[in-house]
Design a protein around this nucleic acid. Structure first.
Lengths: 220, 220
DNA sequence: CGAAACCTTGACTTTAATCAAGGTACGTGG
DNA sequence: CCACGTACCTTGATTAAAGTCAAGGTTTCG
């Protein structure tokens, strides 16, 4: 059932982390596993998910080249699986006692992990299905090099679980976008964004920067 | 409009961070402000929120004694406000160049911040209003010392924005819980949980730990 | 005592989930 | 090469859930 195709693209033992290759659909770690390692995506796409009591699945993040995932304290709070074939760089998670030595690099990883978690939170903030899907498409497009032609690596079902919608609603919404000329579909996984303006408006997470001073006063 | 009542509970300049006191309802920092400081809650409750394009507000976290918030890289991605009167400990956010020196303490803060972000994500994973509110009540109860009698510091509107519901739905749902003898209400802010079992079942985020081995193989 | 802020509830409307049926693309074996 | 199976996507009809509109109640505070 579980087979992994070793890539062996790197022969040397780097201090930075071990390279590993995981085939599409394979579980990288399970929810509840000991969090002995953190991961950085070298290529491909990874999803993290939790399984709730009623068998419902929630996706808590998608991770692309350069993203960090698996940053958990003692055990992994969510499972990670390869959406596509992926190449990963694996790091040993440091014990608290070794913190001083680790320092900078891990600090940076934590920050990036936090960033990822927040992207997920922000997506949820949108009320309607159209809002959420639009925000999702834009987030994907922003990460992609080619602005207009966007490759969507995950299935409708994946997107649905990520946005807390059903795959039906996701599909309908995307079809609607195509009908309204917001996007064009070259197959289900290939989206060209036609009207960034209106799509961004639909996603509607534009805010002006804070106007008033920090509005606080310290004691001491 | 903006007034802050200085507590002056600490006269000394500690390396650990400056103590400050902020009155209920006051903005601690705005969305878009420069992230010069991180914060730890000494007492009280803080909320972080973003304002979306259509004026809609999303709450992305509640922070209680010991929690860390405001951990952003360059600018604050969300605003922070005092839900109750709060006492905070403020830390200077280090520049990347000073990372080596900072190390351990900041590392720990990042981890805690990440944890908080995830609690928010997990709450969103629940499908129905009843699920989300139940999960919310349990999360609050778990943090509270007195298990059965729980003080809810935030308004229905706050809860609604956090759970991405309307205040009506939150109110209705809580009333339903009371009608069904899941909880008892001693005023809107004072909840006694009568049936932890069923409430936890409703929240339904119980999962068994991972069964299969990590299912991965390294190259190199 | 009156105002303001917050909470609750009811009636109705909108939205998304569910139920149900096909359609398309890909891969495998006859 | 084609037939079949599987996995994924789309669409329609119906039902359930949450949002909206509207009103009234409670608490707190000046």
């Amino acid at each position: 059932l579980i087979t992994i195709y070793s890539h062996d693209s790197d022969g040397g033992q780097r201090p930075a982390g071990q390279l590993m290759s995981v085939a599409k659909g394979i579980v990288i770690y399970h929810q509840g596993d000991e969090a002995n390692h953190w991961y950085e995506v070298v290529s491909g796409t990874v999803r993290t998910c939790r399984f709730l009591g009623d068998g419902h699945r929630q996706l808590t993040g998608f991770f692309y080249t350069g993203d960090v995932f698996g940053v958990d304290r003692a055990i992994h709070r969510e499972a990670a699986e390869a959406v596509t074939g992926v190449v990963l760089r694996r790091f040993s998670a440091v014990a608290p006692e070794q913190l001083e030595a680790a320092s900078g690099a891990q600090h940076n990883m934590l920050e990036r992990a936090l960033e990822s978690a927040r992207e997920c939170i922000f997506l949820f903030g949108h009320r309607t299905a159209a809002n959420r899907v639009a925000a999702f498409l834009i987030a994907i497009a922003d990460r992609s090099a080619a602005k207009s032609g966007v490759q969507i690596p995950m299935t409708r079902s994946d997107i649905a679980d990520y946005l807390n919608l059903t795959l039906h609603t996701v599909s309908r919404t995307i079809s609607e976008f195509a009908r309204d000329q917001l996007i064009a579909l070259d197959g289900p996984q290939n989206v060209r964004i036609l009207d960034f303006e209106r799509l961004r408006l639909l996603a509607g997470d534009t805010v002006e920067p804070g106007q008033l001073p920090p509005a606080l006063r310290e004691s001491a």
